[in-house]
Write a protein that binds this DNA or RNA. Sequence first.
RNA 1: GCGCCCUUAGCUCAGUUGGAUAGAGCAACAGCCUUCUAAGCUGUAGGUCGGUGGUUCGAAUCCACCAGGGCGCGCCA
Length: 627
Amino acid sequence: MRLYRRHDRPLRHGRASPPDRPVDSRLRDPNQMNDDIFARVRGLVLTALREIVPDLPEDAMAKVEVTPTRDPAHGDMATNAALVVAKPARQPPARIAAALVERLAALPGITSAEAAGPGFVNLRLDPDVLRAVLPVVLRRGIGFGDSRTGGGAPVNVEYVSANPTGPMHIGHCRGAVVGDALANLLAKAGFAVSKEYYINDAGAQVTALAWAAYWRYLQAIGTDLSEEEFSDEVPGGLQYRGEYLIPVGQTLAASFGGSLAAPGGRIAAPDVWIDTVRDATIEEMMLQVREDLRLLGVDQDVFSSERALVASGVVDDVIDRLAVDGLIYEGVLEPPKGKTPDDWEPREQTLFRATQFGDDVDRPLRKSDGSNTYFANDIAYHADKITRGFPTLIDVWGADHGGYVSRMKAAVKAVSGGAATLDVVLCQIVHIVRGGQPVRMSKRAGTYVTLRELIEEVGADAVRFTMLTRKSDAQMEFDLDAVLAQTRDNPVFYVQYAHARCRSVLRAATEMLGEAALAEAVLAEVALDSLAADAELALIRRLATWPRTVEAAALAREPHRIAFFLYDLAGDFHMLWNRGRDDSTLRFLQPDRPAETLARLALVAATAVVIRSGLAVMGVTPVEEMR
RNA sequence: GCGCCCUUAGCUCAGUUGGAUAGAGCAACAGCCUUCUAAGCUGUAGGUCGGUGGUUCGAAUCCACCAGGGCGCGCCA
């Protein structure tokens, strides 16, 4: 048996609280602009701590946490304060804990404090303090949980950034949703967020795209070439054979007639057509990409073009700057150990000293034909973002780019002199399944799932919610049938159902009490003393953790936590609802007891508000009723 | 061969950045619809947190090594 299991033997009890005692204004004042009662209690703990141990170092104070208890038997909140300051204070945790207990238990709003385990202090709050969360929620509405953690600091979130070479498919989907939700989350946490899309419209792939569109153009004007004859003339062969380029070819034919082709619908010299075709095709593809994103509810603020970046000379400027700093050299890389490519031969290249900034090897900036590598352009792009005023960059990438993270971080350090940081959120593969069976993704077999088809089949809300039900760096199965199932194990349904039930109760109450009595501002004023059942207080405690959930998720860059919070919140609400099944006095609407009914309606309305607040971060539309 | 990510209940996954007795859903087992809120509900059982060491008052969490899975590995983006 471990010694610290003796938390059932409190060292000291707080005195009982007289029912008419006013609650400490520091614990309930909504004008404090801090919706987080945990943060407010933490403030009380820190104040008490300073009295007990003067001159504690800031870094020790920073480690003090006030958290919800895992076990209700431990009270409402717990703090590790005594444990984390024991060493700098040169006092045993138990002694500090005892002193904290004495001071905290004396505060109004705290009904008991007791030391437990190795030095935790468990706090029990006056139920009025908990209940006071409800009017705060009702007055602040969806804005409940907004925080000032970010302090208005600019953050640039870049996501999707797919090549404009075809329709968006489900591989792009997860990054789109994760990036968008992360941006919303950071905005809610008080950052000034810019949502950005980097158009990879330079390089060999868009040249291949231009050739593919040119083929559709030749077809539109009536070429006598076969597809294979044409393909033989294309450097690298014809790619992007999907039908989606047919309209592009037709539009080109309508605009330019036969002027982009040689007589007989034959291939003209690339100089004649390639710029025109490429520009028109990219423009059309980006229109489609933006339409796909719009259908998914994603709307980025800035679209940056790689080609425009190169044309502006920024890339050369940035490389020059790195050269001046001595971070570029001509050198020869070692072959990868163990697995040397067959055609390996030592080659002198222009290299960036990534190893000076934590990367494993130095990275090439120029291809053998003298043009820049993608990495070189990407360095310039990130430098450009920094120049535009973003010291904090977040990129959302597919996991297949994982090997690219350390070099990009190194580059950001180098170009900013260490002033800017880059966080990369990697998204693992999504496997689409239907009823447990894998849906193969293959362009050739015609079972290629486009983003648009996915949205048409299950709806944007289900797509978005489901994409956020896993940590982004964990692989995910997306079951087309399961996301539409109306059962508890489908979080989309379970959360939406909770909101619909809240709204349903409020609609029924309207008939009983009239619409005016149910306005959120009015419910914010009702007496709440009757809310005392375990399930009611548990729900209130959950609502109270929303602000700290937002803050923690934002700092961790983990939007999936919002989905899990909502699932738990929905569980608490359904639990309460179900209590009314066995015991009708626990139902929300009690016609002969209007005061209790109003208090319960305030709880229901507040629950609906917080669900909406969470869904707003996820970009999911709350439903009013289940049909 | 090297680097990064991952490994938690039979299954799918959380785990509040190092806290107390590791949680939820599904599946399993036992109950619960004449009626009110059953597109279900209540309860039970289920664990060597991949393994071994280490740091710490305290480890699923941090470090080292090992095993298994995924991704990547000099001019593709």
